[in-house]
């Protein structure tokens, strides 16, 4: 019997993206540049996070025309973002044939209490998380891939690092707890008990875990890889820089050769200026996208 949209198939695509770079693009031309540079997938958007931040107002799912044009332009997987809790945007993206849906804090949340029940869909979902509890809640709802939230559109990697260290620290802590303490741990981190048991036993998340939110240089990508992520999302970092094609290619190489400082030194040379960065402390709490969702 043919089984479509199974958990193996949903999680499987994320496995194929590992060791790769997923790039935000807003036009078919940018999608081609990303593909040519070696991106393993693109995220089709109307605006990159830095511009969403600058524009303010309500950020929604991209116009289907843009998503379709980008799908026609490249052969690599095309992802798209839906607002947190907006299951109809997700239904539309699935109908369009998007390969992955990012239920994303970069867009303005549509529901302040509930995320999408991602088990309802054949298309797989990726969701952001700041810590292990949040990651396991999203997986419990059906996310087949997790990424750090970081702080999108800032070109500042500090929040992605904080979130990755938080997840890894909590994973290590669970591994060291005796079994009778795991239910209390599940209660404290508000995470499904069966997933807490899985993490305690295996020492890792049950799905692929990428870095996102503030990655702007090859060194940033390699840093996140050395901290233990499986791959990297780059949002504004590429097309807000001086030489997007060269930077994109260098970040791809850095994600593969993250453990080789010699190669990292070579590929980091002559890339032109990175995107302008934002110091996190200058953002008011309401400007921090990572606080969206729970």
């Amino acid at each position: 019997m043919v089984e479509k949209g199974s958990w193996t198939v949903k999680k499987g695509l994320a496995e194929m993206l590992k060791g790769g770079v997923i790039m935000d693009v807003t036009t078919p031309e940018q999608a081609k540049i990303a593909e040519e540079a070696g991106a393993c997938a693109v995220m089709a958007l109307e605006r990159v996070p830095a511009d969403i931040r600058a524009a303010g107002g309500v950020a929604r799912m991209a116009d289907p025309t843009i998503i379709k044009r980008i799908m026609d332009a490249v052969t690599i997987p095309v992802m798209a973002k839906a607002r947190i809790g907006h299951f109809v945007e997700a239904q539309i993206l699935e109908a369009l044939g998007a390969d992955y849906i990012d239920e994303s804090e970069v867009l303005t949340p549509a529901d302040d209490l509930y995320h999408i029940n991602k088990h309802d869909f054949k298309v797989p979902f990726v969701c952001g998380a700041k810590n292990l509890g949040e990651a396991l809640r999203r997986i419990g709802e059906g996310a087949a891939m997790i990424r750090t939230k970081g702080e999108p559109g800032t070109g500042n990697v500090v929040e992605a690092v904080r979130h990755m260290r938080a997840v890894m620290g909590e994973v290590r802590r669970l591994q060291n707890l005796p079994k009778e303490e795991l239910m209390t741990a599940a209660k404290e981190m508000a995470a499904p008990y069966d997933l807490v048991l899985y993490v305690a036993e295996h020492g890792k998340l049950p799905v692929v875990n990428f870095a996102a939110g503030g990655i702007a240089t090859p060194a940033d990508a390699a840093l996140m890889m050395q901290l233990g992520v499986d791959g990297v999302f780059v949002g504004s970092g590429i097309f807000k820089s001086k030489d997007p094609a060269a930077r994109a290619k260098a970040i791809v190489a850095a994600t593969t050769h993250y453990n080789d400082p010699q190669i990292l030194a070579e590929i980091s040379t002559d890339l032109g200026e990175a995107m302008p960065g934002i110091e996190i402390s200058t953002l008011s709490p309401t400007e921090r996208m990572q606080e969206r969702g729970w």
């Binding site: 019997m1 043919v2 089984e3 949209g5 198939v9 997987p77 044939g97 390969d99 054949k122």
Partner: peptide
């Protein structure tokens, strides 16, 4: 032929 079976929504498993 690349992506011959279709996009991700058409991905499947089979005995």
């Amino acid at each position: 032929e690349r992506n011959a079976f279709g996009r991700q929504v058409d991905s499947f498993e089979f005995d």
